[in-house]
Simulated scan of single mutants.
Amino acid sequence: MKSNIFTAKRPFSTSHSSVDSEEIKKFQLLAHKWWDEEGEYAALHSMNDIRVPFIRDTLLSMSSNYQLGNPLSGIKILDVGCGGGLLSEPLGRLGASVTGIDPVEDNIRTADRHKSFDPVLAERIQYKSSSLEEIVEDSMETFDVIVASEVVEHVADLEMFIKCCSQVLKPEGSLFITTINKTQLSYVLGIVVAEKIMGIVPEGTHEWEKFVPPEELERLLESNGFSVRSMKGMLYNPLSGSWSWVQSTSLNYALHAVRAGAPPQPHATDTLPETDVQQHSATAGTAGTVPDSAV
Rank of each mutant, 00 (worst) to 15 (best):
L217Y: 04
D102G: 05
A111N: 07
L235F: 15
D144L: 10
I180L: 15
P202W: 00
D144K: 14
M160F: 07
Q279H: 11
V246H: 06
Q247W: 06
N4D: 04
L189N: 03
G92F: 03
G288W: 06
K163M: 13
P266I: 06
D138W: 01
F54I: 12
T179R: 10
S130W: 01
S186F: 08
P214N: 03
I75W: 03
D57M: 10
I177V: 14
K9H: 06
E209R: 15
W34Y: 07
Q247I: 08
F211K: 07
C164R: 08
T286P: 10
N237C: 12
L132I: 02
P53D: 03
W34L: 05
F27N: 04
L221F: 02
D112A: 04
G74H: 06
E195V: 07
E150P: 02
V212G: 11
Y236V: 07
N224M: 08
N252T: 06
N237A: 11
F54G: 06
G84D: 02
K170W: 05
G204P: 01
K115F: 00
G288E: 01
L94E: 03
V120I: 14
N48S: 13
Y66F: 15
L239G: 07
D112K: 13
Q279T: 12
T289K: 14
Y66W: 15
V104N: 11
E133K: 04
W243M: 09
K170V: 08
S186P: 07
H256T: 00
D118K: 11
E137A: 15
F161R: 10
V228F: 06
E150S: 09
T271C: 12
A122C: 11
T283Q: 08
E274K: 14
T289S: 12
I162K: 08
P263R: 13
N181F: 01
E141S: 14
G95R: 02
M1C: 10
S166R: 15
P71L: 09
F54S: 07
T249N: 05
V52K: 11
S248P: 05
P103C: 10
S230F: 03
Q184S: 08
F211T: 02
G285E: 00
V147K: 06
A31K: 00
E153D: 08
